[in-house]
């Protein structure tokens, strides 16, 4: 095995070729390389390049999503091995569009981008009751919850959900990230949540929130 294999894997991720990324991952595994090395030197490095070029405006959103999909396809074989060897995922994030709102394109986008960065996503869908967020956070011992709202009105449900999290003693154990067209950094701060303006910022934010929690 040489670096050439990792370069090929990174290319497959970058170009969003799911079949190729899976087959290269399998062949590197067959050479006896451990899953964690493949994840770090192949997949994540490939996605890092994608992230940089997206920020520069060289890659467009559909290309990023294809890359994320390619990463996910490689992860189908790596994930069981990573769990077996005790390697933790980047983190588990619960996502949902708040109660009263069925707009979910933004939330889905964030989910795909987070998955592409190695996060595990529990997607509760749209029109999600506060209790459902809370029950899932307790059940999965999840540290980060992401809420989305598209309407100025349903945005208030973010505040409601956080109040209920406090009532049930969950708020202190999680970090809440919020986003959506009407949401502002000030609003997020007011309700005790963290703001990101778009899907790629959401990935950076999730990384930051997990690092805050391990400290």
């Amino acid at each position: 095995m040489g670096n050439a294999d990792f370069a090929q894997l990174q290319d497959a991720i970058y170009s969003g070729d799911s079949d190729k990324s899976l087959s290269i991952t399998e062949s590197i595994l067959a050479e006896g390389i451990d899953a964690k090395t493949i994840l770090n030197d192949g997949l994540i490095k490939g996605m890092d390049k994608v992230g940089v070029d997206f920020k520069n405006g060289d890659l467009f959103l559909p290309e990023v999503l294809l890359a994320a999909r390619a990463m996910k396809s490689s992860m189908t074989v790596l994930k069981p091995l990573l769990i077996k060897s005790g390697v933790k995922s980047s983190g588990k994030v619960i996502l949902g569009t708040v109660k009263g709102d069925i707009h979910d394109i933004g939330k889905n986008l964030v989910g795909m981008m987070l998955e592409g960065s190695g996060f595990e996503i529990i997607d509760l869908g749209n029109d999600v009751e506060p209790e459902i967020f809370i029950d899932m956070a307790i059940k999965e011992n999840c540290k980060v919850i992401g809420m989305s709202a598209m309407l100025t009105t349903t945005m208030m449900m973010m505040k409601e959900t956080i109040i209920k999290m406090k009532d049930r003693g969950v708020y202190d154990k999680v970090k809440v990230m919020v986003g959506g067209a009407p949401v502002t950094p000030q609003f997020a701060e007011e309700i005790g949540a963290f703001y990101s303006a778009n899907a790629s910022e959401a990935v950076d934010l999730a990384k930051k929130l997990f690092s805050m929690q391990t400290n």
Binding site: G57, F60, L61, P62, L109, N198, A199
Partner: peptide, 9 residues
Amino acid sequence: VMDMAIGYA
């Protein structure tokens, strides 16, 4: 209209 380079509508 989505700006595909940044993902905004």
